[in-house]
Amino acid sequence: MRVVVADDVMLTREGIVRVLSEEGIEVVAEAENAEVLLRHVRLDKPDAVVVDIRMPPSHSDEGLVAAQRIRTEQPDIGILVLSQYVEPSFAMRLIEDYPEGMGYLLKERVFDGAILVDALRRISEGETVIDPTIVSLLVGRRRRHDPLAGLTEREREVLSLVAEGRSNKAIATRLFIAERTVEAHIQQVFLKLRLPESPDDHRRVLAVLAFLNG
C-alpha cells in the first residue's frame, strides 16, 4: 500500500512515517501543508493519505477541506484524517457526503502500529472508520428521554461497532458471535430506534451517527 502523510509538525510526521514503514507500508511522500499534500496526491497517485486536521495557514480545519478536495478529484483514494478533537460534528462533516473509504481517528492512536494499519486497511477496503472515543462519547451522552435505554447490553455494543464503521463480519469476529446473529441484532436496534433499515454499510454509519448526535 502506498501512502502520503501530511502533518505540519515534523516530529509527529516522522513518527507516523516510521510506524508505517515498520508495518511494511510504503510512504511515497510527506507533506507539511495541504497544498503540498494535494500536489503529491496528483503526482504520486497513492492508495491512501494520512492527514492532520489542523495545518497551516489557519490551523483549523485544513485537513477536512483537503480531504474533500481529494475526494472530488480522485474518489478512489482512501483518506484518514487525524485529529485531536473529540468532536462528533467534525467526524460527521468528513463523512457526510461520501463515507466510503473515509476515516476520522484521534491522533494519539497513530503510534500504535496495529491500530493505524487496521484503519488504513479498512479504509482501502471501502469501510468507514470512526474513532471509538467519539462513538463512546455519543453513546454515553446523558439524555433526558434516552432512546438507548431500551437496548440490551449486546445491542448497545453492536450499535457502537456499527457507529465505528465496522462491517457485520468484523463485528461478528469482535464479539465472537455468528454473522447472522449480528444481522439480527442490527435489525433489532434499527427497529427499536425507529431507524430506516439500510443494507448499505456506509449509509448505515451515517444514519447511526446522525441519530446519536441528533
Binding site: V9, L11, T12, G15, R54, H59, Q84, K107, E108, F111, D112
Partner: peptide, 19 residues
C-alpha cells in the same frame, strides 16, 4: 492553540517514544 500546538504535541511525541 498554544496548548494544542505546544504541550499536546510534546506529550504526543512522548507517547510515540514510550510506545
Amino acid at each position: 492553540r498554544d496548548l494544542h500546538d505546544g504541550a499536546q504535541q510534546r506529550v504526543l511525541a512522548l507517547l510515540y517514544e514510550f510506545q
